[in-house]
Design a protein around this nucleic acid. Sequence first.
RNA 1: GUGGAUGUAGCUCAGUGGUUAGAGCACCAGGUUGUGGCCCUGGGGGUCGGGGGUUCAAAUCCCCUCAUUCACCCCA
Length: 417
Amino acid sequence: MLTARPRGTTDILPPRSEQWRTLEERFREVCRIWGYPEIILPLFEHAELFQRTVGEATDIVEKELYSFPDRGGRLLALRPEGTAPAARAYLENGLHKGPQPVKLSYVGPMFRYERPQAGRYRQHTQLGIEVFGAAEPAADAEVILVAVEVLRREGLEGLSVRLNSIGCAGCRPAYRETLRHWLHPLLPGLCADCRSRYGRNPLRTLDCKIERCRQALGQAPRTLDALCDECREHFQEVQGRLEGLGLPVTIHPDLVRGLDYYTRTVFEVMHDDLEPSLCGGGRYDGLVEVLGGPPTPAVGFGMGLERVLDLAKTQGRSTRPDLFLAAADEEARPRVFALAVEARRAGLATHFDFGGRSLKAQMKAASRLGVRFSVVLGQRELETGVAVLKNMDSGAESEAPIAGLAGAIGEQRGPTS
RNA sequence: GUGGAUGUAGCUCAGUGGUUAGAGCACCAGGUUGUGGCCCUGGGGGUCGGGGGUUCAAAUCCCCUCAUUCACCCCA
């Protein structure tokens, strides 16, 4: 099929494309104010980057990675997420040797070979930020606040933040073993997925959605109870900072995430009307080191632009055009063309008919386009040099010299919003 | 990867074995002499997702396939 887009991709048509750009602009504005300049990263990377950081045994790498050998024999992958590439760029460009922390934002498409459904695509767009070189809880809190700020600017209500800590390289291995021992006798009663998770990633059994498993795991040891002193303090401080600002946060002891690089803080921002999260993130203190850099604490989030757009009621910038120039006869068409060019150069969003349509049809087109003003040009106007400017909303007409049309419209239109 | 639902005009859908497949909206043109929105008239537009099968006859029944969609998994 020549006229079918690949599965899981979408075409963004106007006016949705306008909303899309508006959302991007607002995100960039928030990033500017909060101090997260943009980094522009490649859409593909060495596949190994994701295998080593996101994790070999995660779904994202194991079954969702778009990977391919290029003509030079390099094994590449379309990026499935933004954090690993950002960390790679941070190291590769020596940002770790400059002043810390380094705060960055990014916007762009991510690719995952998943089965599409509501709010889930094979190509989706993430708005994300990262802080490198900051171990303090204030950094975690700021990152979460930025996420909420972006969503609030979109006019979203019914937001909630889920927060948890999954411990660090020091305390997590012990917890993992504790959990595994605890799980062992229950295995026969758990679902097939959980039985396989037991071996690969026992933490994931905690957020199984199957009721039987939920009940069986209700009394499971919690990551929060197994945190080392440092992790517990860190977590309490993050929580305290957020609550100190009046941001309601729900502790979800069963929130674990499907990317291996997370440590300590993990969080998701949810909306009442959408099942999947709008935004997910957390701390990843070991990631830069895995890539061969110095131990570097870091924290960040990724936000699903399409998901936000599905919920946002905000409109795109008004695209209402200013002027339609209509030709009353064939002789006037070249003049209409020239005047349209002139009006556009003067900053007026201007439309005209390329040719062939009757005056009536042109007026109809003008009306449909939603222009504010129309002007008809024919032999009469060309001779007198005076045309009638019509307000398409009120129907009111006024005379204006053709030479000064742009100015006359500028006055009547008022300041551009 | 698992399970369910659905694919007919640009859009929303009707048509479930029988002539040239329909409606509303949208689109184009006209309703005389230079003016939009309402109304009226006319017109263009469909490989009935694709392929195979059953039948005298298939949009309609069967199989396969592709796609969409919902849930699960996972995630943004």
